[in-house]
Protein backbone atom coordinates (compact mmCIF):
# COMPACT_ATOMS: atom_id res chain seq x y z
CA UNK A 1 0.00 0.00 0.00
CA UNK A 2 1.45 3.30 -1.03
CA UNK A 3 1.04 6.17 1.44
CA UNK A 4 -1.42 7.86 -0.92
CA UNK A 5 -3.70 4.86 -1.04
CA UNK A 6 -3.42 4.41 2.69
CA UNK A 7 -4.35 8.02 3.26
CA UNK A 8 -7.31 7.71 0.90
CA UNK A 9 -8.45 4.54 2.67
CA UNK A 10 -8.27 6.25 6.04
CA UNK A 11 -10.21 9.23 4.85
CA UNK A 12 -12.87 7.32 2.94
CA UNK A 13 -15.24 6.60 5.85
CA UNK A 14 -15.20 10.20 7.02
CA UNK A 15 -15.59 11.65 3.57
CA UNK A 16 -18.26 9.11 2.69
CA UNK A 17 -20.19 10.04 5.79
CA UNK A 18 -19.98 13.73 5.01
CA UNK A 19 -20.93 13.21 1.38
CA UNK A 20 -23.90 11.02 2.17
CA UNK A 21 -25.31 12.85 5.17
CA UNK A 22 -24.19 16.42 4.59
CA UNK A 23 -23.52 17.07 0.95
CA UNK A 24 -26.39 15.06 -0.53
CA UNK A 25 -29.05 16.54 1.79
CA UNK A 26 -27.70 20.03 1.14
CA UNK A 27 -27.96 19.45 -2.60
CA UNK A 28 -31.50 18.14 -2.16
CA UNK A 29 -32.37 21.26 -0.23
CA UNK A 30 -30.87 23.32 -3.02
CA UNK A 31 -32.86 21.36 -5.58
CA UNK A 32 -36.15 21.68 -3.70
CA UNK A 33 -35.71 25.42 -3.40
CA UNK A 34 -36.37 25.83 -7.12
CA UNK A 35 -39.79 24.14 -7.12
CA UNK A 36 -43.29 25.25 -6.19
CA UNK A 37 -45.36 24.37 -3.17
CA UNK A 38 -48.38 22.20 -3.90
CA UNK A 39 -51.76 23.34 -2.62
CA UNK A 40 -51.74 20.76 0.20
CA UNK A 41 -48.11 21.18 1.04
CA UNK A 42 -46.56 18.73 -1.36
CA UNK A 43 -44.15 19.81 -4.05
CA UNK A 44 -45.06 20.71 -7.59
CA UNK A 45 -42.08 20.04 -9.80
CA UNK A 46 -42.22 23.28 -11.72
CA UNK A 47 -38.99 25.26 -11.93
CA UNK A 48 -39.13 28.73 -10.35
CA UNK A 49 -36.97 31.44 -8.76
CA UNK A 50 -39.97 32.67 -6.81
CA UNK A 51 -38.78 31.23 -3.47
CA UNK A 52 -35.60 33.29 -3.59
CA UNK A 53 -37.53 36.38 -4.62
CA UNK A 54 -39.77 35.83 -1.60
CA UNK A 55 -36.80 35.29 0.69
CA UNK A 56 -35.56 38.85 0.10
CA UNK A 57 -39.02 40.36 0.53
CA UNK A 58 -38.77 43.07 3.26
CA UNK A 59 -40.64 40.87 5.78
CA UNK A 60 -38.23 37.96 5.56
CA UNK A 61 -35.21 40.19 5.04
CA UNK A 62 -35.97 41.96 8.31
CA UNK A 63 -36.24 38.58 10.07
CA UNK A 64 -32.84 37.62 8.64
CA UNK A 65 -31.26 40.91 9.73
CA UNK A 66 -32.85 40.65 13.18
CA UNK A 67 -31.51 37.13 13.56
CA UNK A 68 -28.06 38.26 12.51
CA UNK A 69 -28.23 41.06 15.08
CA UNK A 70 -29.25 38.71 17.89
CA UNK A 71 -26.57 36.21 16.85
CA UNK A 72 -24.01 39.03 16.72
CA UNK A 73 -24.90 40.16 20.24
CA UNK A 74 -24.62 36.58 21.48
CA UNK A 75 -21.23 36.27 19.78
CA UNK A 76 -19.96 39.54 21.21
CA UNK A 77 -21.02 38.72 24.76
CA UNK A 78 -19.57 35.21 24.42
CA UNK A 79 -16.23 36.65 23.29
CA UNK A 80 -16.18 39.17 26.12
CA UNK A 81 -16.87 36.46 28.69
CA UNK A 82 -15.02 33.67 26.92
CA UNK A 83 -11.67 35.38 26.38
CA UNK A 84 -10.93 36.13 30.05
CA UNK A 85 -12.16 32.65 30.97
CA UNK A 86 -9.85 30.97 28.45
CA UNK A 87 -7.00 33.24 29.53
CA UNK A 88 -7.53 32.28 33.14
CA UNK A 89 -7.51 28.59 32.27
CA UNK A 90 -4.25 28.91 30.31
CA UNK A 91 -2.65 30.75 33.22
CA UNK A 92 -3.89 28.20 35.76
CA UNK A 93 -1.46 25.55 37.01
CA UNK A 94 -1.19 22.84 34.40
CA UNK A 95 -2.70 20.09 36.56
CA UNK A 96 -5.88 22.18 36.93
CA UNK A 97 -6.32 22.96 33.27
CA UNK A 98 -7.99 19.76 32.14
CA UNK A 99 -10.30 19.84 35.16
CA UNK A 100 -11.30 23.40 34.30
CA UNK A 101 -11.91 22.44 30.68
CA UNK A 102 -14.12 19.58 31.81
CA UNK A 103 -16.10 22.08 33.87
CA UNK A 104 -16.57 24.25 30.78
CA UNK A 105 -17.86 21.20 28.90
CA UNK A 106 -20.03 19.97 31.76
CA UNK A 107 -23.30 21.63 30.61
CA UNK A 108 -23.20 19.52 27.44
CA UNK A 109 -23.85 16.47 29.56
CA UNK A 110 -27.47 17.43 29.88
CA UNK A 111 -30.00 18.12 27.18
CA UNK A 112 -30.16 21.60 25.65
CA UNK A 113 -33.94 21.72 25.93
CA UNK A 114 -33.88 20.91 29.63
CA UNK A 115 -31.19 23.50 30.28
CA UNK A 116 -33.31 26.05 28.43
CA UNK A 117 -36.35 25.18 30.53
CA UNK A 118 -34.22 25.67 33.62
CA UNK A 119 -33.77 29.30 32.59
CA UNK A 120 -37.54 29.71 32.46
CA UNK A 121 -37.73 28.50 36.05
CA UNK A 122 -35.09 31.05 37.01
CA UNK A 123 -36.25 34.04 35.02
CA UNK A 124 -40.04 34.08 34.95
CA UNK A 125 -42.11 36.64 36.79
CA UNK A 126 -42.79 34.17 39.60
CA UNK A 127 -39.35 32.62 39.18
CA UNK A 128 -36.48 32.19 41.60
CA UNK A 129 -34.71 35.45 40.75
CA UNK A 130 -37.81 37.61 40.96
CA UNK A 131 -38.94 35.93 44.17
CA UNK A 132 -35.54 36.58 45.66
CA UNK A 133 -35.71 40.22 44.57
CA UNK A 134 -39.21 40.54 45.99
CA UNK A 135 -37.87 39.11 49.22
CA UNK A 136 -35.30 41.89 49.20
CA UNK A 137 -38.07 44.44 48.82
CA UNK A 138 -38.47 44.91 45.05
CA UNK A 139 -42.05 45.88 44.26
CA UNK A 140 -42.18 45.17 40.53
CA UNK A 141 -40.78 41.95 39.06
CA UNK A 142 -38.02 42.47 36.48
CA UNK A 143 -38.98 41.57 32.91
CA UNK A 144 -36.27 38.94 32.49
CA UNK A 145 -38.09 36.46 30.30
CA UNK A 146 -39.82 36.45 26.89
CA UNK A 147 -37.70 39.19 25.37
CA UNK A 148 -34.47 39.68 23.41
CA UNK A 149 -32.44 39.80 26.60
CA UNK A 150 -33.55 36.27 27.46
CA UNK A 151 -32.79 35.03 23.94
CA UNK A 152 -29.25 36.44 23.97
CA UNK A 153 -28.72 35.10 27.48
CA UNK A 154 -29.88 31.65 26.43
CA UNK A 155 -27.67 31.62 23.35
CA UNK A 156 -24.60 32.83 25.24
CA UNK A 157 -25.21 30.23 27.92
CA UNK A 158 -25.62 27.49 25.34
CA UNK A 159 -22.67 28.26 23.11
CA UNK A 160 -20.09 29.90 25.39
CA UNK A 161 -18.13 26.63 25.75
CA UNK A 162 -17.34 26.67 22.02
CA UNK A 163 -15.89 30.15 22.37
CA UNK A 164 -13.83 29.26 25.44
CA UNK A 165 -12.44 26.11 23.84
CA UNK A 166 -11.52 27.83 20.59
CA UNK A 167 -9.74 30.67 22.37
CA UNK A 168 -8.10 28.27 24.82
CA UNK A 169 -6.68 26.25 21.92
CA UNK A 170 -5.27 29.39 20.40
CA UNK A 171 -3.86 30.77 23.67
CA UNK A 172 -2.25 27.51 24.68
CA UNK A 173 -0.35 27.35 21.41
CA UNK A 174 1.11 30.79 22.00
CA UNK A 175 4.90 30.57 22.34
CA UNK A 176 5.80 31.82 25.87
CA UNK A 177 9.17 32.95 24.52
CA UNK A 178 7.40 35.72 22.60
CA UNK A 179 5.93 37.10 25.80
CA UNK A 180 9.31 36.96 27.55
CA UNK A 181 10.98 38.72 24.68
CA UNK A 182 8.31 41.39 24.71
CA UNK A 183 8.86 41.93 28.43
CA UNK A 184 12.65 41.94 27.96
CA UNK A 185 12.30 44.65 25.38
CA UNK A 186 10.49 46.77 27.94
CA UNK A 187 6.84 46.32 27.07
CA UNK A 188 4.38 46.52 29.93
CA UNK A 189 2.12 43.47 30.49
CA UNK A 190 -0.80 45.45 29.07
CA UNK A 191 1.08 46.41 25.99
CA UNK A 192 2.39 42.83 25.57
CA UNK A 193 -1.18 41.58 25.77
CA UNK A 194 -2.52 44.12 23.30
CA UNK A 195 0.35 43.91 20.83
CA UNK A 196 1.41 40.26 21.03
CA UNK A 197 -1.12 37.99 22.74
CA UNK A 198 -4.33 39.42 21.37
CA UNK A 199 -3.31 39.70 17.71
CA UNK A 200 -1.85 36.18 17.74
CA UNK A 201 -4.97 34.67 19.28
CA UNK A 202 -7.47 36.51 17.11
CA UNK A 203 -7.84 33.45 14.86
CA UNK A 204 -9.06 31.58 17.93
CA UNK A 205 -11.55 34.34 18.67
CA UNK A 206 -12.64 34.22 15.02
CA UNK A 207 -13.09 30.45 15.13
CA UNK A 208 -15.11 30.67 18.34
CA UNK A 209 -17.15 33.55 16.94
CA UNK A 210 -18.04 31.63 13.83
CA UNK A 211 -19.16 28.70 15.97
CA UNK A 212 -21.32 30.86 18.21
CA UNK A 213 -22.70 32.99 15.41
CA UNK A 214 -23.58 30.09 13.13
CA UNK A 215 -25.19 28.07 15.92
CA UNK A 216 -27.08 31.11 17.21
CA UNK A 217 -28.48 32.36 13.93
CA UNK A 218 -30.00 28.97 13.14
CA UNK A 219 -31.34 28.30 16.64
CA UNK A 220 -35.11 28.10 16.99
CA UNK A 221 -35.61 26.56 20.42
CA UNK A 222 -34.28 29.51 22.41
CA UNK A 223 -36.35 32.22 20.69
CA UNK A 224 -39.40 30.00 21.09
CA UNK A 225 -38.94 29.15 24.77
CA UNK A 226 -37.04 32.11 26.21
CA UNK A 227 -38.30 34.65 23.70
CA UNK A 228 -41.87 33.43 24.18
CA UNK A 229 -42.26 33.24 20.40
CA UNK A 230 -42.41 37.01 20.27
CA UNK A 231 -39.24 37.31 18.23
CA UNK A 232 -39.04 35.24 15.06
CA UNK A 233 -35.55 34.22 14.06
CA UNK A 234 -34.62 32.72 10.74
CA UNK A 235 -34.36 29.28 12.38
CA UNK A 236 -37.99 29.58 13.51
CA UNK A 237 -38.97 30.75 10.06
CA UNK A 238 -37.35 27.73 8.40
CA UNK A 239 -38.77 25.36 11.02
CA UNK A 240 -42.19 26.85 10.40
CA UNK A 241 -41.98 26.38 6.64
CA UNK A 242 -41.29 22.67 7.05
CA UNK A 243 -43.44 21.80 10.05
CA UNK A 244 -46.26 24.33 10.03
CA UNK A 245 -46.69 25.98 6.64
CA UNK A 246 -45.73 22.84 4.75
CA UNK A 247 -43.93 25.05 2.26
CA UNK A 248 -40.80 22.99 1.72
CA UNK A 249 -39.55 24.84 -1.35
CA UNK A 250 -39.60 28.19 0.45
CA UNK A 251 -38.11 26.65 3.59
CA UNK A 252 -35.37 25.17 1.40
CA UNK A 253 -34.63 28.53 -0.18
CA UNK A 254 -34.31 30.14 3.26
CA UNK A 255 -32.18 27.26 4.51
CA UNK A 256 -29.94 27.53 1.51
CA UNK A 257 -29.46 31.26 1.97
CA UNK A 258 -28.46 30.55 5.55
CA UNK A 259 -26.02 27.86 4.41
CA UNK A 260 -24.52 30.34 1.94
CA UNK A 261 -24.04 32.95 4.66
CA UNK A 262 -22.41 30.40 6.92
CA UNK A 263 -20.08 29.20 4.15
CA UNK A 264 -19.01 32.77 3.58
CA UNK A 265 -18.25 33.20 7.27
CA UNK A 266 -16.31 29.95 7.46
CA UNK A 267 -14.33 30.93 4.38
CA UNK A 268 -13.46 34.31 5.88
CA UNK A 269 -12.39 32.64 9.08
CA UNK A 270 -10.26 30.08 7.19
CA UNK A 271 -8.53 32.88 5.29
CA UNK A 272 -7.88 34.70 8.55
CA UNK A 273 -6.31 31.60 10.07
CA UNK A 274 -4.18 30.94 7.02
CA UNK A 275 -2.89 34.51 6.97
CA UNK A 276 -1.97 34.54 10.63
CA UNK A 277 -0.56 31.03 10.28
CA UNK A 278 1.81 32.32 7.60
CA UNK A 279 3.06 35.05 9.87
CA UNK A 280 3.67 32.80 12.83
CA UNK A 281 7.39 32.35 13.52
CA UNK A 282 8.53 28.83 12.76
Amino acid sequence: MTPTIRRAALMAPGLGWLALFLLVPCLLVLGLSFFERGVYGGIDYIFTFENYRRAVDPLYRSILLNSAWIAFLATLVSALIGYPAAYAIVKAPERWQSALLVLIMLPFWSNYLIRTYAWIVLLNREGLINRALAGLGATEPLPLLYNDFAIVLGLVYGYLPFMVLAIYASLSRLDPALLEQSADLGASPVSTFLRITLPLTLPGVAAGSVFVFVLSIGNFITPDLLGGGRRVMVGNLIYKQFLAARDWPFGSALAFLLIAIMMLLLLTQALLVRRSGGERPA
Partner: peptide
Protein backbone atom coordinates in the same frame (compact mmCIF):
# COMPACT_ATOMS: atom_id res chain seq x y z
CA UNK B 1 -49.28 31.53 7.18
CA UNK B 2 -47.92 34.78 5.84
CA UNK B 3 -50.17 36.85 8.11
CA UNK B 4 -49.07 34.86 11.15
CA UNK B 5 -45.40 35.25 10.18
CA UNK B 6 -45.95 38.99 9.90
CA UNK B 7 -47.66 39.10 13.30
CA UNK B 8 -45.09 37.02 15.12
CA UNK B 9 -42.13 38.87 13.59
CA UNK B 10 -43.60 42.35 14.11
CA UNK B 11 -41.67 44.37 16.67
Amino acid sequence: TRAVTEITSAQ
